[in-house]
Amino acid sequence: MINVQNLTKSFTTHVKEPGLKGSLKSLIKRDKKTKFALNGVNLQIKQGEIVGLIGANGAGKTTLIKILAGIVHPTSGEATVLGYKPWQRDNRYRKQMSLIMGQKAQVWWDLPALDSFILLKEIYQIDNFTYKKNLEFLSDTLMIKDQLKIQVRRLSLGERMKVELMAALLHNPRVIFLDEPTIGLDISAQKAVREFMKNYQVEFKPITILTSHYMADIQELCPRIVIIKEGQFVYDGSLSKVQRMLGDNKVLSVTTEKEIFQLEVPRTELSIKTKEIFENHNVLDLNIQDPSIENIIESIMRNGLGPP
């Protein structure tokens, strides 16, 4: 179980005026700027639940994950994961947790993955039977058996992510933090990772927090989403609910002799708008659709939960 109460994290950075004058001034005195990466957030997640954390770059998603993984200390507030304060880095907690960062390799680059796995077996004190069973299961499911003896740096991006997943799951973690696991992967690799995580979640039921900029990841894996904007949660609930809440609009895709354009109009004004379009343009094609989930999320991130 994850329980987060009024969690705040601020970072202080130095700011420098541009130009030579600014550089000289900064030799004597530097101005500081404090930014709140998280500003009093609350969150509860039950065992077996998978939650999608969505937000723009710099919204605070990764900071939350880093705090819950025990990498970063919060400025104030409380958080417990499986009953432990993550930043106290109790080994009993760390043995039950895994973090996968799509932009940061955790296996050792200069060695074949199997060498890293042997070390992880010792670090996590995995018994031989479990190690062999998990290695077999993960390499079969991820279809990466043949690549495990090749230096990690020589693997493709997709293969590397599969290796990262294997390294992170060898010790049967009860809590998994996935920070943009599909970033930079091609469509088929993204699909493979998604498919794997979906099946893994069903079979092993860990607590999982996933951040991703790819809505396909969120749609496929996360029945519950949390939208974070400038360090605060603006929505915490089911994905389908947010679609219903902001799904009162329709998107009209219009192809005329001269141009192709899209219009987002309230459902109640649909017939009037359609009539206007037919009166003012020589319409070749007209398509009426629900707004995409990307547009809905983007709208929430831009305007909050008010009308788009």
């Binding site: 990498i71 760390r94 960062m101 670090i123 996590y124």
Partner: peptide, 12 residues
């Protein structure tokens, strides 16, 4: 560069 993260999550 942030690769220090790795050692903070391992139980050692």
């Amino acid at each position: 560069d942030g690769s220090f993260n790795r050692y903070l999550i391992y139980p050692l």
